[in-house]
Design a protein around this nucleic acid. Structure first.
Lengths: 190, 190, 190, 190
DNA sequence: GATGAATGAGTGTTCATTCAT
DNA sequence: CATGAATGAACACTCATTCAT
């Protein structure tokens, strides 16, 4: 029967995220995760090769989900600034709806486990947005600087502002998100 | 009686940084750090109350050093853009000279240990720069948005660009640092 | 899955008692106990929450066993002196048969761990004997003094005489036990 | 200069007793005792060969003091019952005045360290009382049983009644001490 | 004589993982 | 498939003692 499996797998996914967010990566042992998911530690090894693979696959699953959500209703035909503004909002929306997912990815990205991720696989979930920036450069709407620099002023500010540890005073309401976008756009636009 | 050995203390400081950078916070056990510093694990407890205090004090020491370096030759009388540009370069300089210190602070800031830092103490090492932004707002040179937003487009881009994991393609040469500064300034200037 | 191994559990029980008797409470480390029981130190934590709980539960188990044995063939209808004499002999019998159990309880009662025992639980194993003393007072057969005083002249002499460290010269043969009982009865009888 | 030494030695004596009573033998480490006595751990080794010798000599010193006090105003010419009654009271007095000394000896007597005491040396401090019992037997005032049995009904009841862990309800006032003596005398008298 | 620094050996406990059922 | 039992290896930390001053 498949149903049972899926229930256990989902419980494991959520338990992993919950525990890592609560007590951190280092303290999240296999048996604690198992207890949180209400399964036996041994059962984890039915679904995952080892602890490492459990944590990595949890990360990739979140990133996949995030990529899909960001691109919902993605309309390539709009003016470039409008596309990016929509993406900008989508990111904040996603984090507002799934703060625990975002928190997990942040913790994960700074753990030794991030080295084990297949980066291409994750990146491809964000291909459409990425492409927008390259088009903006071609169309001389966006500054002709390296992609890393553009991300440092578009993606990383989002990440920083959404991280309560870094930005305790930033409240992610429409007004603040809008005014932050102004800075992002001023930064990257030609 | 013997006197406290500053050579041992320094070796411990460097060993802690080296090991954390190599294998991460979670895997950096007291005995591994001791071995790296070529002292006995028990000796660590002569210099530090516990593991936590060792890691936190290492962080604070780096931050202090960083703050001092950033503010060398700090000239408050220059035009605001020039001050910030100078600070911008100083940051990249510092990271270029002490990449291992920077890497440690990045890892630390995302570890559970960061909660234990006396934030005021650390922040005060950066007071002069912080003050420049507030002055810029008053003088209507910089956009009147929250400090968190300004940092998201000034400090965090530096951090992101200097993190090889996030920005593998960004080479921190003068040209690239300069062009990144253009984006930062465009973002925050009125 | 495997089922909990009662052989291991019993070996642990006996190993704990043996080691504590041989080298004392303070020196009886978890790993030494494990080695004596021929199991892994980690396995102890399958059966017991921690060292404390191992030692306390070992004590309670002995006390339970002792209480049951003391009350075998307990006949409440006999004359009071005969009941107490029977109990008196039963105590010495028990100690003669299980000197290692007795020694453990003596060491335990003087260790910091004794504070962690649920005293009511242990006391209830001895309820029938305890009741005899109260009846003796009511029936004006036994002196009307506090229960503590009665025990000081009935129970503690047994304990002292059975402790080879305190009474090296007392040989617990029938003649000596009988003559000691004479003193006990003379002490408590009205 | 001798003064300094004596001050340190006394501080060490009291610190040892205080700490052992507070946290038990097992937890009383050399460095904790040193801290309590406000000296360096290394200094302890100036006065004592090792930890063991520190604890044992502390015990012997108390026993010596106790023996002396018990025998103050000791009058061998009184009727035997009066001598023992006086000794009985002296014991309770001593414990009332120096509960911390008594507590230490109780803890010590049940630690593995007691095996290291020169028993003859300690016993000789109590020789005069001991002799009274032998005289009582000769004079057919006291039951002709082994010395161990007599102690089990004279000394050990005192110890039991004075141990708050064993006898929580016994309040050592004159009335209770007196009535307890009645039992002791009834036990041992012919 | 007196000290704080220094340490090898040990502490109680948890870990990721495997095993037997 | 699913499990709790079992464990070697590691953890952070403390110990009694010695060393250099």
């Amino acid at each position: 029967m498949r149903t049972k499996d899926t229930i256990k797998q989902d419980a494991l996914f959520e338990a992993t995220i919950k525990l890592v967010n609560e007590i951190g990566f280092a303290a999240s042992s296999v048996s604690k995760i198992a207890k949180e998911a209400k399964i036996s530690p041994a059962t984890i090894y039915v679904y995952h090769k080892n602890k490492e693979e459990l944590l990595v696959s949890t990360y990739v699953q979140i990133k996949k989900n995030m990529g899909h959500t960001i691109h919902e209703y993605f309309d390539d035909s709009l003016p470039l600034r409008d596309i990016l503004k929509s993406v900008w909002y989508k990111f904040f929306d996603y984090i507002a709806i799934h703060p625990e997912y975002f928190q997990y990815t942040e913790q994960f990205a700074n753990s030794p486990y991030q080295a084990l991720v297949n980066k291409e696989e994750v990146e491809k979930y964000f291909d459409p947005v990425i492409h927008v920036f390259y088009r903006g450069i071609e169309q001389k709407i966006i500054k002709d600087v390296s992609f890393d620099i553009l991300m440092a002023f578009f993606l990383h500010p989002i990440v920083a502002l959404s991280n309560p540890r870094l930005c305790q005073d930033f409240e992610p309401n429409n007004k603040n998100i809008e005014s932050a976008f102004t800075l992002a756009w001023d930064a990257i636009k030609l």
